Simulated assay, not measured.
Amino acid sequence: MTETAPVELLVCTTCRRGLPVEDDADRPGTLLHKALEQADLPEGVTLRAVECLSNCDQGCSIVLRGGPERWTFVYENLSEVDHVDVIVDGATKYLASEDGLVKWRERPEHFRKNCASRIPPIGA
């Protein structure tokens, strides 16, 4: 079996998901990051909190990226309540792929319908 390159799962923690949030309350993006910290992410996926992915009007957003030979994907409209398992499933499939291109039908349905962007590898 070939060893897979490490993958980063970036979560926008400043996302408000279009909701009013009190200054001292956790934002939905922060809650999504906290939920993913408790999830069973596969070995080889590193979870990172980032500030503002500039996709503010499209709910909580994440990025899956991994090395110079993989495509990078931005997914949107995510929820800390409804999509943790979806994100884990998508990250697991992304990690297992050589180039980050998981076959469309094998992607979680939410990923198929809520891909904000796909960015080619540096070497493309």
Rank of each mutant, 00 (worst) to 15 (best):
L47D: 10
V21C: 14
C12T: 14
Y94M: 02
Q38H: 10
R65G: 01
P42T: 05
V84T: 10
P28W: 08
V45D: 07
R65E: 02
F73N: 04
V63C: 02
L32A: 01
D57L: 12
D89K: 12
K34I: 10
H33K: 09
T92Q: 13
E69M: 10
D26T: 11
F73H: 14
R27A: 14
V63Q: 05
L32T: 01
R70G: 05
P28C: 06
V7S: 08
D23G: 09
D82V: 06
V63R: 03
L31F: 04
P28I: 11
Q58T: 15
A96W: 02
L53R: 02
K34E: 15
Y94N: 00
T46D: 01
A91M: 06
I62H: 00
V74M: 05
E43R: 11
V81R: 14
L101C: 11
C52S: 09
P6A: 05
L31G: 04
E8N: 00
T13W: 07
V11R: 11
D99S: 11
L9N: 08
L32M: 09
F73C: 05
T72W: 01
D85A: 14
E22Q: 07
Y94K: 04
L36I: 05
C12W: 00
G29R: 03
R27D: 09
L31E: 08
G59K: 00
R65W: 00
G100P: 04
A35Y: 05
G18A: 06
G100V: 01
V7Y: 01
C56G: 13
C56F: 03
T30G: 08
S79T: 03
A39S: 15
G18E: 11
L101T: 12
R27S: 14
D99K: 07
R70H: 07
R70K: 15
Q38V: 03
T14K: 12
Q58K: 11
D40Q: 15
D99L: 06
R48Y: 00
D82S: 14
S79Q: 09
V45M: 08
L36D: 10
Y94W: 06
A49C: 06
L101D: 12
C56W: 06
V74D: 00
L78A: 10
E22G: 13
L19F: 07
D82H: 14
Q58F: 15
F73T: 13
G18H: 10
L95T: 06
V86F: 06
A39N: 07
V45A: 07
P6T: 06
Q38L: 12
E98G: 13
D26S: 13
D89S: 14
Q38G: 05
Q38A: 15
L64G: 00
L41T: 01
C52V: 03
E22M: 05
G18W: 11
L31V: 10
L19V: 11
A49L: 02
C15M: 04
R65P: 00
G66A: 11
H83S: 05
P20R: 14
A96M: 08
L95I: 01
D89G: 07
D85T: 10
R48K: 15
